[in-house]
Amino acid sequence: MLGFLTRTRGKSRMDVTDILAWAWLILGTLVIAIPIGWAFLSSFKPEAEINSFPPTLLPRAAEELVIEGYDEPLPAYLWTDETGEARTVGLVRRIGLKATVVDPASPGERLSVDAGAIEKQTVISAEWANYTDPLERFAFLTYLKNSVFVTVVATILTLVLNSMAAFALSKYRFRGSTTIFVLMLSTLMLPLSVIMVPAFMVIVGLNLADNLWGVIFSTVATPTGVFLLRQYMLTIPDDLIEAARVDAASEFRIYWRIILPLSAPALAVLAIFSVIWRWNDFLWPLIVLSSPENYTLQLGLNAFQGQFTVQWHYILSMTVVALLPVTLIFLFLQRYITEGVASSGVK
């Protein structure tokens, strides 16, 4: 580790700037990881644990003992008797300052002890009910389904429509092509917040309000995607297209059999981004979708946290569900993503 640390810039000695640099990296990593890690760990805590203060780092639950003669498992306590000897017992009941306990070693014998002499025992455990309950009892399964539907359909449409447009704008010189391209680019900077109201009017006019297709259709014709694909397709030699034309390929066949396969790297980048964009979209679905059965996961999560402010064990588990797909994509494809961003400035 030290060897790794000191190897910066190929010098044998570490100077002050090296130390500061590493301090920055480690601090930054902690700052990024701790809130997420904390939310992740907390999402496995049972309701009682999550509301206790000071909090424990790891999710814990009360330990339980199964003792002969008792139908239900008893909560485990550590009992320290007068002699200072400690042993694990099961708590039967507690009344005032007295507690009735039973030693698993002699299940028939009940002991009455000082309530102050016993201490609750916990074990590390994961509360999976945090995850299963919201999916069963609340509409999270519907939200999840809606999110997956919007994400998948919008991404497929984005890839098809954007690549067709990019093909035309990169490989043909036709009247109006520059105009179209400039118009698209100029709206690259035009945010939703400026056209929120009229865009919603269009949705209403098309009878797509409170409809998932309203969310999908208005997001697929991304200028960003067309731009990214066009820049890539410009690097494919025009000779290939002419060779294909000589080879009697129709224009659609050229697009499908030559251009699309050769644009695979750019298509992959756009696909990744599209999935992340659509999965994370918030403001636009918030405007378009009004009934809960049409909510996406993000909307559902927001509505739930507004309604059930104390149900943090559910809020956190669903937060983890919402960040999981993006995290998995990132784990496997981070190189494509970071390089795609660095080379195209797309976010």
Partner: peptide
């Protein structure tokens, strides 16, 4: 080429250009 840009342009016009004007 118009056939290729048309679908994208149509959606783009409906959901971006027209709102900008509106």
């Amino acid at each position: 080429p118009w056939v290729f840009v048309l679908p994208n342009m149509a959606l783009f016009t409906i959901f971006v250009f027209i709102p900008v004007l509106l």
